[in-house]
Design a protein around this nucleic acid. Structure first.
Length: 452
RNA sequence: GGCUCUAUCGUCUAACGGUUAGGACACGGCCUUUUCAAGGCUGUAAUCCGGGUUCGAUUCCCGGUAGAGUCACCA
């Protein structure tokens, strides 16, 4: 069926820090392009920097990718290829394309050491980037760049080229911050007598300050784990990141990973960098939350439910479950439910609220009026049978009364406040239904006592 | 500073020479069974500047300007 089975892409993160949003974006684009063309997508951990590479960071990369659902077809560690690097290093030296240079160490001033430098013939390199078009660079100012500290310690530009050759990578898709590395690498491909892969440098994602996303300047907000902890959906994060620097050419904005694979083309990738916009991410996340089956919504809400809610006197799992659709409407990410205890939007469902007299009285109305309406509500609800205790019946019974009034507010506000104890809350019918008949009447009685 | 790249509403973007410059987020207004949320409708808001090319430029070319990336014995 496919004519592009030869396509192989890779993501090559280094385990020297937590999994970065930029890495997520690059991984995503590599994955989308490979899947779209029935090719392969590889994961290679770039751990040649023995000192800075840490196992915990590698674990974070693996876990994050798994959480996101970006699955690779093969996995390598660059350190596993050291013998290959050594062979090619020797080959280059044998052919006089590289040489051992004895010079003062840059790491430890004063110390003399040997490094391996590439013999740069200072030619002009032009490559056709699938996104940027033709890029021409004069490599003379690169000089004889260092490709290895010694035979056992190849440096990035060299190791990447050897590994990409060995893995038969056909398309190098990476961030535009790698554009300056490309001429260097092309020189190495040629020196090694290997085919040069296609390059596609995707636009960078900038922080709201329009600077490249960096841990130092932007802190936790660049770590994928932060979004996971805060209850964002992986599919939402992916959807959002795909839409920075790429568009489907239609007005569709909400995509599943599968949908992105179908819609993705490198032709519609932007050349210019895009700013990370949290508002938009929140909106996309909400759209994905609404798409989730109810059981999934429940599962996630419970996952983030704080003890300040579960420890409440009348807390009960079944009741909580019925509240989920309501909660989904009121949050933009699941982590938001963590702040719904402690007098927040969830507390009054499981605890009789403390009422303040002034708040009970509707503005423009009087205490006596409020009392009259509450008495009426009390009578109406008392007459409602337990089996009739649904949002719909409660609502129609109360509204039938409220509609006989010139304005509904004076009747509805005291009732809502009596039940919630909050200036802002869901409607009284939803609350009454959730807390049950007995508790509803109890709270109305509390309000009447205060007004007496 | 050198090199490379980029330039449409505040932000993400559509337009591949001819549009009242479209959509989304955010913001404002209105509506909807009190408030909040959700939902519906609606409004404000953009082609960086200057030259060309062309009957006609957001679109093509050149020059400015601005922004970004990068300049390791890190990746």
């Amino acid at each position: 069926m496919s004519t592009n089975e030869h396509i192989i892409t890779r993501i090559a993160p280094s385990p020297t820090g937590f999994f970065h949003m930029g890495t997520l974006r690059t991984a995503l684009f590599c994955y989308l392009y490979a899947r779209k063309h029935d090719g392969k997508y590889l994961l290679r951990i770039e751990d040649t920097d023995k000192i800075r590479s840490k196992k915990e960071f590698e674990d974070d990369i693996l876990e994050s990718l798994k959480w996101l659902g970006i699955e690779h077809d093969a996995f390598f560690r660059q350190s596993e290829h050291l013998s290959e690097h050594k062979i090619y290093l020797q080959k280059l030296i044998d052919e006089d394309k590289a040489y051992i240079s004895r010079e003062e160490s840059k790491e430890n001033a004063g110390e003399m050491r040997e490094v391996i430098r590439f013999r740069n013939k200072s030619e002009t390199v032009t490559f056709h980037d699938l996104i940027l078009g033709d890029v021409t660079v004069d490599t003379s100012d690169l000089g004889d760049f260092v490709i290895a500290k010694d035979f056992d310690t190849p440096l990035y530009n060299f190791a990447v080229v050897v590994d990409d050759c060995n893995a038969n990578i056909t398309h190098v898709i990476r961030g535009q911050d790698h554009v300056p590395n490309t001429p260097r690498q092309i020189l190495l491909y040629k020196a090694l007598d290997k085919p040069v892969p296609a390059f596609a440098h995707i636009p960078l994602i900038l922080a709201p300050d329009k600077q490249k996303l960096s841990k130092r300047k932007h802190g936790e907000s660049v770590a994928v784990s932060t979004y996971r902890k805060n209850g964002y959906l992986p599919e939402a994060l992916i959807n959002f990141m795909a839409l920075i620097g790429w568009n489907p050419g239609t007005e569709q904005e909400i995509f599943s990973l599968k949908g992105l694979v179908e819609a993705f083309t490198l032709e519609r990738v932007q050349k210019s960098p895009g700013v990370f916009n949290l508002d938009k991410l929140n909106w996309i996340n909400k759209e994905h939350m609404k798409l989730l089956p109810i059981e999934e919504q429940e599962k996630r809400v419970f996952e983030f439910l704080p003890e300040s809610v579960t420890n409440l006197p009348h807390f009960n799992t079944e009741k909580m479950r019925t509240l989920v659709p309501n909660i989904i409407e009121r949050i933009e990410k699941f982590g938001d439910v963590r702040t719904m205890g402690d007098g927040g939007e969830l507390t009054f469902f499981f605890e009789t609220p403390t009422l303040v007299r002034d708040s009970l009285v509707f503005k423009g109305s009087t205490a006596d009026e409020g009392k009259t309406h509450l008495l009426e509500a009390q009578a109406i609800l008392t007459n409602l049978g337990e089996s009739d205790w649904t949002i719909e019946t409660i609502k129609s019974a109360i509204m039938a009364y409220a509609d006989t009034l010139p304005k509904r507010g004076p009747a509805l506000h005291p009732l809502r406040y009596a039940l919630s104890g909050l200036e802002r809350s869901p409607d009284p019918f939803t609350i009454a239904n959730a807390i049950g008949k007995t508790e509803t009447l109890h709270r109305i009685q509390n309000a009447l006592t205060i007004l007496a």
